[in-house]
Design a protein around this nucleic acid. Structure first.
Lengths: 161, 161
DNA sequence: GCAGGTTCGACAACCATGTTGTCCATTACT
DNA sequence: AGTAATGGACAACATGGTTGTCGAACCTGC
């Protein structure tokens, strides 16, 4: 097989998609239609202190404009609120709503359940080992899940421009 | 830690991105600027017999229109040619050019090299085991790498998991 | 041989999610 | 106070998908 390398990549993608697709579907089933990982990520960043668009952009490694668009969606769905920042009139302070937190909570729960399923299939020790390897291989660089079609996108570092 | 499930997903994505980003960058370094996994996939499908837009769409699980757009790019870059099909005047027969094959070949080579690096890090046996687990977990469903921002996209009810 | 359905490919409009670039108000710095 | 930096808005555009529609070519049944 001359494609084991590429296959490995596909397999990794497959694993990710499998989890995320299932989680998204389950979240929808529970009444949170159309919640996507990116939303969760953004909310998490907001909850973690990225309480304005520019900062959120920085944390998510996207432009502030992109962050603003995401925020608009989150706000529209009632997952975050935006109020004037009393300390800085330029800012609009973001806050995750109870509904937003609820979605995050359920998301976590679902992912835990999915992981537990995998664990049941191959055993806890084996999954732990698997995760260890994965961590080793991936390293510590934070993972970006950004650009539309990033699978097919130009990547900053090199080809860039 | 209540996020091990989600972290597992991220880790998988990280692994995929790590490989793909490296491969894309390396391919660019070798003069094939802007070649993306989706291109490779499409070329592979063409080479494997999807020699018209509609068929390609089917194989890639995207609409024929989307396939047509991809083909346009591939053609523009000289990776595929389009000629009238002598047997069916509706069709434009696709063929991967030598350049296209070259890109595929180099892509494979690069992925192999990346996999070999991982192998060197954790050992062949361990990597094999890792891949086995991954295969078990992912199953045999073909992996789609389609929709723009699929990470953040609505997913048809199937869930895929 | 031809009517009617199916398929191919093209075009246009649109959605989603990014990106630059520009601009103004506000804040921070010197 | 004057100037730089920052936050956010808006507009234009790139990418890569999606529907919807349509004409031309093919296929099938009568």
């Amino acid at each position: 097989m001359s494609r084991s390398g590429a296959d490995l990549a596909l397999l990794l993608l497959g694993g990710f998609r499998s989890l995320v697709d299932s989680a998204t579907a389950e979240l929808a089933r529970r009444g949170h239609e159309g919640v996507r990982p990116a939303h969760d990520f953004a909310m998490r960043a907001v909850a973690a202190g990225a309480d304005n668009a520019s900062e959120l952009g920085r944390r998510l490694s996207v432009t502030k404009q992109a962050a603003a668009k995401t925020i608009a969606v989150l706000q529209e769905r009632g997952y975050v609120t935006r109020e004037a920042d009393p300390l800085d009139a330029r800012r609009k302070r973001l806050r995750v709503t109870p509904l937003g937190f609820e979605v995050m909570r359920q998301g976590e729960e679902i992912f835990e359940e999915l992981r537990a399923q995998w664990e049941r299939r191959i055993g806890p020790a084996e999954l732990a080992r698997f995760e260890d390897r994965l961590r080793e291989l991936v390293g510590t660089e934070p993972v970006r899940l950004d650009a539309p079609g990033w699978v097919a996108q130009d990547l900053g570092g090199t080809g860039g421009g």
